[in-house]
C-alpha cells in the first residue's frame, strides 16, 4: 500500500504524459489532487504558476509535488514516483 502523503499533480489537460501520470496514481490507489493549469485563469493561474515555479523553475508538466515540496518529480518518471510513494 502506498504510504500516505499529500500529493498534487500539476498537469495540462492536453498533455499525454500528464494523463498517464494521473492514470498511474489512480491505478495505484494514491490519493492526490490534480490541477489542470491550462484551464485556470486570472489570479488563480498566476498564483498556481508561481507556486509551481518555486519547485520547478522550468514550469514543465507534469510536475508532481509531494508533501509541500519535500519531494518533487518533474516529468512522468514511474520509478521515481514508485520510490517516493512506496508503491
Amino acid at each position: 500500500m502506498a504510504k500516505s502523503c499529500n500529493v498534487t499533480l500539476y498537469a495540462l489537460s492536453t498533455c499525454i504524459h500528464c494523463k498517464k501520470a494521473k492514470q498511474f496514481l489512480e491505478d495505484n490507489g494514491v490519493p492526490f489532487t490534480v490541477v489542470f493549469v491550462d484551464q485556470l485563469t486570472g489570479d488563480e493561474r498566476k498564483e498556481t504558476i508561481a507556486r509551481i515555479k518555486e519547485h520547478n523553475p522550468k514550469l514543465s508538466f507534469p510536475t508532481i509535488i509531494i508533501d509541500e515540496g519535500t519531494c518533487v518529480i518533474v516529468g512522468f518518471h514511474k520509478e521515481e514516483i514508485e520510490e517516493a510513494l512506496d508503491i
Binding site: 486570472g42 498566476k46 523553475p57 522550468k58 518533474v74 516529468g75 512522468f76
Partner: peptide, 18 residues
Amino acid sequence: TAIVVPERRPPEKILGQD
C-alpha cells in the same frame, strides 16, 4: 518508446498571464 525529455524551452518564454 516512452522517453522523458527534459524541457528545453527557456522558462522566461512562458508569460503566465491568461
